Simulated assay, not measured.
Amino acid sequence: MSLRVKAVLFDLDGTLIDSAPDLAGTANDMRATRGLPALPFEQFRPMVGSGARGMIGVALGITPADDGFIVLRDEFFDRYEVRMTQHTRAFDAVPAMLDAIEALGLRWGIVTNKAQRFTNPLVAALGLDVRAGAVVSGDTTPHSKPHPAPLLEAARQMGVAAHDCVYVGDDLRDVQAGQAAGMATVAAGWGYLGVGEPVAVWGAQHVVHSPDELLKLLAMA
């Protein structure tokens, strides 16, 4: 089955970019200041989609329901802002994928739950800002994913109807947001994927395991 769309919207972390090294590094920095040894990267990676909440949970065993979480979250944000471009890169096949999407005459954009404070400088540092038709962050609209508002805002900015878009992401919330927005949905099996239900049962119209697989879906349309 092909995807007949006019625009492709992507989640950012775990879909277009591998930000796990800097997010995990920030969490281990917080452990180091408390005299704790670094944890293996593999413990952090599945939780990257949960942002600061996930990183703090792994690093310090603290959840949003615990006293002191807000202080730790703000510390995490401040530390991450300093180092967020140190090791973060686009996944290897992503630049060629974006070139091919543009060659197909399709537009593309970014919809992330990351706050603008981090999204804008990070996207600019990676050179994605000058190519993306829209960049919508978690605080661009009053709601974040899985609410459809950010996806609908991206479609509005690009001048494309929601039903002419596909949303690609590596988290269940991405699929839920895409469905709520009336968009086609693709689960990015190369991403972080979390620790919940397996990607195959998220309900996405397609599950792809590489950017090349996504291109095949788009090129067939």
Score class of each variant (00 low, 15 high):
F91G: 00
L128C: 10
G105D: 08
V111N: 04
Q86E: 12
V111K: 02
I101Q: 01
E81A: 15
A90H: 05
R89N: 09
K114E: 09
D129F: 11
L126F: 14
Q116Y: 03
R89G: 04
R89E: 10
L128G: 06
G105C: 08
T85L: 11
A90C: 15
R79A: 13
D129L: 12
A100C: 04
L106D: 03
T88R: 02
E102S: 15
A90R: 15
N113S: 14
A100W: 01
W108S: 04
T112D: 08
A124Y: 06
M97T: 07
H87A: 04
E102D: 15
A100T: 13
R131I: 00
A125T: 10
I110T: 01
L104E: 11
L122C: 05
L128P: 07
V94R: 02
F118W: 02
V130Q: 14
T88G: 03
K114T: 08
P121A: 05
V123D: 08
T88I: 00
D92E: 14
A115T: 12
L122P: 02
L98H: 10
I110R: 04
N120E: 14
I101P: 01
L104R: 13
H87E: 11
D99Y: 06
A132V: 00
R117K: 14
L98R: 11
A115R: 12
M97H: 06
G105L: 03
G133D: 05
M84C: 15
W108L: 01
V82D: 08
M97I: 06
I101F: 01
Y80L: 01
P121R: 05
F118V: 01
G109S: 10
V123N: 06
A100P: 01
R131E: 07
M84S: 09
D129R: 12
L126S: 12
R83N: 09
T85G: 14
L128Q: 09
E102H: 09
K114C: 08
A132F: 07
A115L: 14
Q86I: 00
R107P: 01
P95A: 12
R79W: 05
W108E: 04
D92R: 11
T112C: 10
A124M: 08
A100M: 00
W108Q: 06
H87S: 06
D99F: 05
G133L: 08
G127Y: 07
E81K: 14
I101C: 04
L104V: 03
V82Y: 02
A132W: 05
R117D: 03
N113M: 01
T112E: 09
V130S: 15
L106M: 12
T112Q: 08
L106K: 05
L106H: 02
Q86H: 09
V111L: 05
D129H: 15
A93W: 01
T119G: 11
Y80G: 00
M97C: 13
Y80E: 03
T85D: 09
Y80Q: 02
R79C: 02
V130Y: 00
T112Y: 08
R117F: 07
T85C: 14
Y80T: 00
N113G: 00
R117T: 10
A93E: 15
V111C: 10
L126D: 11
V130N: 09
G133R: 05
R117L: 12
Y80M: 01
V123W: 03
Q116M: 13
